[in-house]
Design a protein around this nucleic acid. Sequence first.
DNA 1: TTAAGTATGCTTTTT
DNA 2: GCATACTTAA
Length: 726
Amino acid sequence: MALENLLDGLNPAQKEVVTSTEGSVLVLAGAGSGKTRSIIYRTAYLIHHKHINPWNILTVTFTNKAARELRDRLQQYFGISAHSLWFGTFHSICTRILRQETEFIPFNSNFSIYDSADQKALLNKIYKKLNIDKKYFPVNKVKSVISEQKSSLILPKDFFDFNEENMFTNNVYKIYQEYQKSLQANNALDFDDLLLYTALLLHDNKLVLKKYRNLFRYVMIDEYQDTNYAQFKIINLIASQHQNLCVVGDDDQAIYTWRGADIKNILQFEKDYKNVKTIKLERNYRSPAVILNLANSLIKNNQQRHAKELWTDAESEEKPLRYSLLNGAEEAKFVAEKIVEKKAANFRYEDCVVLYRTNAQSRAFEKAFNLQNIPYQIVGGINFYQRKEIKDILAYLRFLINSADLESFTRIINFPSRKIGNVTVEKIYHNASIENRQVWDSLQTKKNPYLNRGTQDKVDKFTDLIQKFRLLATEKPVTEITAKLIKELELIELFNASDDPQDIARMENIKEFISATEEFSELFEEENERKPLLTEYLQNISLQTDLDTVNEDNDNVKLMTMHNAKGLEFEHVFVVGLEEELLPHIRSMQDERAIEEERRLLYVAITRAKSTVTLTYSESRRIFGQIRYFLPSRFLHELDEKYIQYGNSNFYDRFQPPKDSRSKIPRPEIVTENQKHFKIGQEVLHPKFGVGKILSVNGKDKNAKLTISFSDGALKKILGNFVETI
DNA sequence: TTAAGTATGCTTTTT
DNA sequence: GCATACTTAA
């Protein structure tokens, strides 16, 4: 395509983005401002006009789906073969780099990638080994502390503050250290490690750094507002020399600071790089003016933001609607009815999306949609690859490739049941450590003095099975291996024979898994002209998310969290569950900055809409099986009344006073679980001092002055705000 | 060693 | 209200 044509149809700001190829460029791109388009055209411009080799361009996206979309469109519009381009998420690109550079990292190239369930299983083992009490060191909490450390490139050795003597950091340090050791022993990396080891590699190894600096001569990063320190560092190492770096983002859409994303990365970009050219894309091509105005009226309540206002030419008669419903079931029923209306008005189901704050909210909608025969698809929640039956098969496949992976081994040794229990597994481990060899090597000798004859036979059968399939895995394509394995294990028969209705679904999932490997094989064969081996398949799927398996051909309503909706657009958007404690979420309510992030989340949700927005508030909701009442979200009060229409109203809504005089509302008393009522003798958790017992309470709730005796013996006076009840 | 029965804790949000 | 983790009996 000629240059003139290439730039046709872009607005001046977009043109600027496309043609500013040299030096550092910061693109502040509002929602729906054609940022994906700009990235595609910029890539095409680099290749066609500047004659840059495709393999010298690195483009980092937020999801695999976004990467695939860029690929497809480049191919489609410009006939550029995606083959040689570096497109992907930080995680997938880091994986690619690490598999190539295994001689410089403490792993071999068959490393497994552990997801959060694998991490937890590993941590549980470590807790046992170190004799640590889960009650005082909740696995999820410790996991997130470790993740936080890794995202900031803080290793165990840097983590421990030797001047500080306290139980909590002390133990978390021990766990962190042991955790890293175990991962290495299993030849496995977790998600954060992918970034961590890449950053360390580039930082410590001059030669490798040079290689990638030369390779990635032009770098583009999408969703830059949601990058963390490790990601910043990786890019900075690669791009600081040539400075050909273009970052695209929108501080109003930063919704991942809880994951370590640092909004400073985008706010300080002009300081981190030289002679930065800043381009703003403020014209919105997605939503009508009423919707944009509504979104603007909300987001302007945030203090921490670059001032900007999206605008559009598009007008619409339909104001966003706001409804109050009695409970979660009514809310779901209401949305279902509205969707039936849309369908009758000649829209497709796939034009509709339901956006909620937490995955748990999906259940009510599933029920209501089933009742009305509305086809739907839940995106996210429990990922396909995280389902138990799928993880079990994956564990087999992983163990075939990476025999050091003991997490996978423990999953499969007794699945399906071979009557090999924990006692036997412990004996296997014990024998391996006595023999001072890897578990798999030890198994292959088929001589374990701790096992009796019968048990040894059972274990040997397993060993034979694995040996047989390991041999197959080196030569046969993945689909064949998988199908053979499932047949050999008689999984289909196993689930078929059961009368648990859930086992039917499990069987279906297993069948779907085989088709998924087939699907991958076909794609792989197109590009590589041969069928993929097991290794190649495994490398591909560890980073797959649900968003990647969304079936675009099916006409169904999509249900997803607001986080998952980032970067997507729909004709009709239903934003549900607009209540205090849900949005903003109760866990974000202590902190003004967290509340701003919740506000951005709603902003992202509203700006997904191409035609209509419907907001719903539910007065009551079942939480953990108990009915609780909620106030309408504070954000509903912030929305400018000019741009919104009340579909209905109810008693509490009409009498809803400003949020500072909440106590005057005539309504049932709201008792929240997490309100901090401190009692003497109660155990609490402090982020720094760890676990302690309350000796005295002075005052109420978060303002209470507490005297706490910590487990390391220290006695401290602390404000209730700083501790968590456990 | 397993199956059945019981207790617990879980819900933010995800690569 | 559900899934899991743990306990107990067979």
